[in-house]
Write a protein that binds this DNA or RNA. Sequence first.
DNA 1: TGTATTCCTTATCGACGCTAACACGAAGCA
DNA 2: TGCTTCGTGTTAGCGTCGATAAGGAATACA
Lengths: 237, 237
Amino acid sequence: MSRERILAAAIELVDAVGVEGMSIRDVCAAAGVTPPTVYHYFGDKKGLLDAVVAAGFERYLQEKRERAESADPVEDLRRGWDGHVEFGLRNPALYGLMYGGARTSQHPAAAEGERILRRIVTRIGEAGLLTMPVDDAVQTIHAATVGATILLITNPSAAGLSARTREAVLGSVLVTGLAKTDLASAADSLLVQLGRGDVPLTPGELAILRELLVKLGGSGEGQSQEVGDQEERGHEQ
Amino acid sequence: MSRERILAAAIELVDAVGVEGMSIRDVCAAAGVTPPTVYHYFGDKKGLLDAVVAAGFERYLQEKRERAESADPVEDLRRGWDGHVEFGLRNPALYGLMYGGARTSQHPAAAEGERILRRIVTRIGEAGLLTMPVDDAVQTIHAATVGATILLITNPSAAGLSARTREAVLGSVLVTGLAKTDLASAADSLLVQLGRGDVPLTPGELAILRELLVKLGGSGEGQSQEVGDQEERGHEQ
DNA sequence: TGTATTCCTTATCGACGCTAACACGAAGCA
DNA sequence: TGCTTCGTGTTAGCGTCGATAAGGAATACA
């Protein structure tokens, strides 16, 4: 009965003050117990943090499992990516414990997360939409997801980074060049082309065109809504 | 004279036992000074770790600067990627401090690293080989690089992960040789995209945009440039 | 010589991770 | 009912940590 209170207090504290700011004594004060009780249940501080990480993975997996698989595995993959990044932004300290550090990281719960990803990618492969072996695709997607999440945590102002990286990776992993055919990308591409060589337009036309393209492009800093919340969805396909 | 010895001892200790295993007193013993000396030079433990991180970035930047720019910016980009990953694998604890943690990460030395990357990407963009704006490409590449490095650190058995992720990202960021390499086809591509889905423009804006795009468009087949040079490459390490 | 500055010390503080030893109520068994 | 066991906590304290107050020794400058 005290174990849950201790674990809950530890999770809350890690989320509030980070790993380095959390002390056993603080956890005890929040949970209403004394230090030896913590050591009775969790062995040592590392054991307590492992339990926190395990609870974090469990929470993450629950979200992941609640996302039912749709008929389109590619859409499932996008949702999985967005869910991962969103989870990291919602629990930055916990995410740092789970992925960032050189910690154990071989948590059994982490393996199930990768298994879910592998199942989705396998379905995509069975549909003949993969440009590489399943394991390679899983590793590539996983690496890019973690990297985008970490960079977003340390630099939340980089709006659109997640969606762009996602489409960039998907564009190479999937045979369908979906990422290159969406509206924002086409506008960005043209914007790049306008920057070099001569353009058969008057200066005024060029100015108007640039403004319109920026409005269409995915890289503008126009919308200041919170990141991670399906910001770029709907553009593709 | 003691400052350098303290910093060197701290770097060595961080590399040997990690951040959490390092204590000021250990550093003092290794450097032959007493604790107050450390606080005299570095303020507090965070200050000392910041100095360690700064030294790490400095070491990383020196390696990066020593790689002279070649005539082919794409090759420079590949070498920069590989150098980044290699540095992370050679200094895992230091890399975790530099990128993994939720630390400030806005170190001035980190900014120069990104500036070097941006310069390379800018050169690629000036060659017309970019499918997205420079800033977007920089962010995407950066995120994927960090992710691949972190996953390789925590799981060194994933051979080939770095090269695969690198080529996957480059395959999306770089123009691969088909269409979209010139102004006319980029305009045509956007024109097609305007035809489907909803466009966040007013009817008037849309009309002007269409007119301008028609003026730019090649009215059918856009001839591609001579960029068939680099295709997919093996490039294992 | 007197004084200021730099560099580093001794000595100490409160908080930390952690542990030994013990207290106490709820079964389990005679 | 009495005795034991076990799960669940406690009190008290160890050694170490990060950090600080106060001052000493050497150098530089007037």
